[in-house]
Design a protein around this nucleic acid. Structure first.
Length: 642
DNA sequence: CTAGGGTTAG
């Protein structure tokens, strides 16, 4: 082999961007025997295992074809696998390294400890720690820091502290790791004490505190620390935006983004995806569209994560059209997240068949589904009543695709059977599950009992729930509705009493609507005089007009929490009705009224929305906790199946 | 030729 060939090969590898490109280079290198050169082999493996997308299988092939891999190759494969969906394989490679009598070094431990962290396996972590000590590496700065993070990830703060104390001269990175560990263990005070004691702080240390505070819901502390921060960097801004968004404070998230622009900082992909996620959750369609323009102007819209956030924003703001436009025309590159998001978007809007078609298209495209893809696909089946299809996917995901089924997948199946009225099949399914059913599983069945009015099964489920999670207000509301519909007033009263005795508060329902780029939120109020005069007036007018068209209030579902004479007033005050009245009062005649609700839409509100869409000739889109309802000309996209 | 801490969509 010549020097020339070697140089040429190395320069080719430097510019290698895709797996197929890598395969070409590999093929050429094998012809000249260059692939046996440790430098070339190492670089090939490094690219496949860590840099290129979807190339891990090829990395394993490269590795297993190498007769006696050097430590670098072991480390590289351990590293690649540690961040994969199967960190377990990383641990197996590490074991093989030991079996092959290749001594692990500090790099090996840094990578394999990451695998233990990703598996959240404390026992594996302990075991690896003894190996670290055996190799005399416990005071190694990098290994020690990874140990701290691993213990934090596995939920053992005490061990993280010990590992930190074993580091003779911890640097700022090690300090940041132990502060993060405190936050992971909900020890905010401990984190604050360490932050005070830190010998040096760079901006990352402050960012650790910001992320810790927002993660703990201490937004006031986060805000004051942010204001006091000497050097805010891009991560600080992103942390505030995503932190406030994930605590439901969408307005603040948007304000931070606007302030970032005012300060003359350039938004990056993280701040943009964060603020888009805030719009998605709040249903702020107008603000989202403006951000889309921002993204294009800043040249960020071609980044996959930004495209995914845009498509998700449009889908959650009720525009399946814009979502698919982003997906079909504006995303040259797509990841598993893009496909899954689009499948979920179609499913949320009731396009079950289309969601399944897209799943097959994804496969033809060569993208392998993962566990979350199957959650979306099963959700699509259950919300469109595709029982056979759902059953088939559930079987195939494990048998054909080799993806482990989690409790969420079982939950989808319970929903699939239950929604369709196959209550006993759903019950039988739960009793035969190989995983212990949790409260969510039983709650799903309770929801199905409510749809289909099965009191006896509901009572049985109630017992299970009272063991697993006795304080969920939604369960009590569901149960009392089931009794009310069946006319069992004594039982309604008894559920109500037990709620009072156990001091269970109903989750307050809220609905929001964006008008002129401002999100207005309405809460179901106890006192009609709390409602703005403008909204009250409009609502009274609307209801009068609907009654002339033959509307009769469906008061069944509220009988549990109000006195007889108040029941009509009570459903009149539902937050989604206040929001739609506000929309009718404030928005021009043509525009679509988009509402987001935190709970499920109530049957009476559903009827009212249908009627408004017909009488006022307005399209109304309501996103509730589980799906979209698109009301047009008197009917709903959910076909009354929700 | 490889590492550790802080923000990122389903």
């Amino acid at each position: 082999m010549s020097i020339n060939h070697h140089l040429q090969c190395v320069s080719l590898l430097r510019d290698c961007k895709t797996l197929s490109h890598l395969k070409q280079i590999h093929a050429r290198a094998s012809k000249t025997g260059l692939d046996a050169d440790p430098l070339v082999a190492g670089k090939l493996l490094l690219l496949a295992a860590t840099t290129l997308a979807d190339a891990l299988d090829y990395a394993r092939l490269l590795f297993f074809r190498t007769p006696s891999p050097d430590p670098f190759m072991y480390n590289t494969l351990i590293r690649g696998l540690s961040e994969s969906d199967h960190p377990h394989h990383s641990l197996l490679t590490y074991s093989q390294m030991r079996r092959d009598s290749v001594p692990p070094d500090s790099f090996s431990f840094a990578f394999v400890l990451k695998a233990a962290a990703n598996r959240k396996s404390l026992s594996v972590g302990w075991q690896l720690h003894t190996h670290v000590i055996h190799h005399g590496l416990e005071s190694h700065l990098f290994v020690g820091t990874t140990l701290v993070s691993m213990y934090a990830e596995c939920g053992c703060l005490a061990s993280a502290r010990k590992a930190f104390d074993d580091i003779p001269q911890p640097n700022v990175v090690a300090w940041n790791a132990i502060v993060t560990a405190c936050f992971r263990a909900d020890d905010v005070k401990g984190a604050e004490r360490l932050f005070e004691r830190m010998p040096w702080k760079n901006s990352a240390s402050w960012n650790v505190m910001l992320a810790g505070y927002t993660g703990a819901g201490e937004l006031g502390s986060a805000r004051s620390l942010f204001l006091a921060m000497p050097n805010k960097d891009a991560v600080s801004w992103s942390t505030m935006i995503t932190g406030f968004a994930s605590n439901g404070l969408f307005d603040d998230a948007l304000s931070f983004f606007r302030e970032l622009l005012r300060e003359g900082c350039r938004p990056n992909e993280t701040s943009l995806t964060g603020v888009l996620s805030a719009c998605a959750q709040a249903g702020a369609f107008e603000s989202g569209k403006i951000l889309h323009a921002h993204a294009e102007k800043a040249g960020l819209s071609s980044i996959i994560s930004v495209g995914n956030a845009l498509l998700d924003m449009y889908a959650r703001c009720g525009s399946i059209l814009m979502a698919s436009r982003v997906f079909d025309w504006e995303m040259e590159k797509k990841s598993i997240v893009s496909w899954t998001s689009m499948i979920a978007a179609l499913a949320m809007h009731g396009y079950g068949e289309e969601a399944i078609q897209l799943f097959h298209k994804m496969e033809e495209h060569g993208t392998k589904p993962d566990g979350i893809t199957f959650i979306s696909v099963l959700y699509a089946c259950s919300h469109s009543g595709l029982i056979e299809q759902g059953h088939k996917f559930f079987q195939e995901m494990e048998n054909t695709y080799g993806i482990e089924r989690s409790i969420e997948h079982y939950g989808c199946m319970v929903d699939l059977y239950g929604r369709a009225g196959l209550l006993h099949k759903a019950y039988e399914f739960i009793t035969n599950m190989p995983i212990k059913p949790n409260a969510i599983i039983w709650r799903t069945l309770l929801g199905a009992c409510s749809i289909h009015g099965n009191v006896r099964l509901a009572e049985h489920v109630r017992e299970k729930l009272s063991e697993l999670d006795p304080s969920d207000s939604g369960d009590y509301v569901l149960l009392s509705n089931i009794y009310a519909v069946a006319g069992k007033w004594k039982d309604v009263a008894s559920v109500r009493r037990s709620m009072i005795v156990q001091r269970i508060q109903k989750t307050p329902g809220w609905s929001s609507i964006e008008v002129d780029k401002v999100v207005h939120t309405f809460v179901a109020s106890d006192d009609i005089s709390d409602v703005k005069e403008e909204v009250h007036k409009k609502l009274t007018e609307v209801m009068a007009r609907l009654k002339m068209e033959g509307y009769i209030p469906e008061i069944m579902s509220v009988l549990h929490d109000v006195e007889e004479e108040e029941k009509e007033d009570a459903i009149l005050r539902h937050s989604e009705k206040l929001a739609v009245a506000f929309g009718l009062a404030r928005m021009p005649g043509e525009s679509v009224i988009r509402i987001v609700k935190n709970l499920r839409i109530c049957p009476d509100c559903h009827t009212v929305m249908k009627l408004i869409s017909k009488v006022y000739k307005r399209e109304i889109v309501v996103r509730d906790r589980s799906r979209f309802h698109s009301f047009r000309e008197g009917s709903c996209s959910c076909r009354d199946y929700w």
